[in-house]
Design a binder for these strands. Sequence first.
DNA 1: CGAACGACCTGCAGGC
DNA 2: TGCCTGCAGGTCGTTC
Length: 270
Amino acid sequence: MPELPEVETTRRGVAPHSEGKQVAELIIRDPRLRWPVPDDLPGRLAGQILREADRRAKYLLLRFDHGTVIVHLGMSGSLRVITDRSEPQKHDHIDLVFTDGIRLRFNDPRRFGCWLWDEHPLNHPLLASLGPEPLGQDFNGPYLFRKSRGRKTPIKSFLMDNRIVVGVGNIYANEALFKTGIHPNRPAGRIGAARYQQLCEAIRETLSAAILMGGTTLRDFVNSEGKPGYFAQSLLVYGRAGQPCVECQRPLREIRMNQRSTVYCTRCQR
DNA sequence: CGAACGACCTGCAGGC
DNA sequence: TGCCTGCAGGTCGTTC
């Protein structure tokens, strides 16, 4: 499910309901996520105050005074704010309960997500080698151009490599390449500096617009209030295979790259 | 080092 | 109605 806009949407929804609050308990109904939820996590959190709901790449970072919970939503995860007494449903694996009764409820049917603990999360092996944030200063045209020299890998694979830039998943990689007129299969090393500048701007614009619309809901993404995002209606190519290109009206083509659905216009993207 | 691919897991749509 | 296949927004670990 979630790419960066969906994770950021979740963070923004969760932060006002959790920051500054004391943890009453952590309820783990099913610890079998991508990695087992640590046995000692409830003990670490009880009584502690959640200082900040932060984000790095697609990881949510729940920061406490003595360490940080690293949450990933995987493909199907969601984190909702529960303010009533609604009973946990299927796949509601974890509740983080605050002393005022409000709770964060983690649901993840496919269990590709994770809940981990680290005192210094940015040094955690999962986060240590991540590339720059796409909406940050370090991500720019010259950076992409420099990193791509000599690389034969298709540009779409290059953009989805977390060591190059984080947060660009399958939907937004397709969208940004269409906006820039670049064929997804073009070798990354054979794209010039000017086009990398355009590509960088397209990525930032696409992600920013998606955040403003609360993310993309294709089938099951819900935000912290359990509601869908509205960016799906703005998608230009993803999920539109066979439909006319918004620029030239030719039918969009779908191929597989690295087992991922890849949609593009054979005329507009070279 | 880079690149390709299987693996993890559940749910759903479509074909027969 | 049921069974089978393939597909889904991520990304790690293995292999070459």
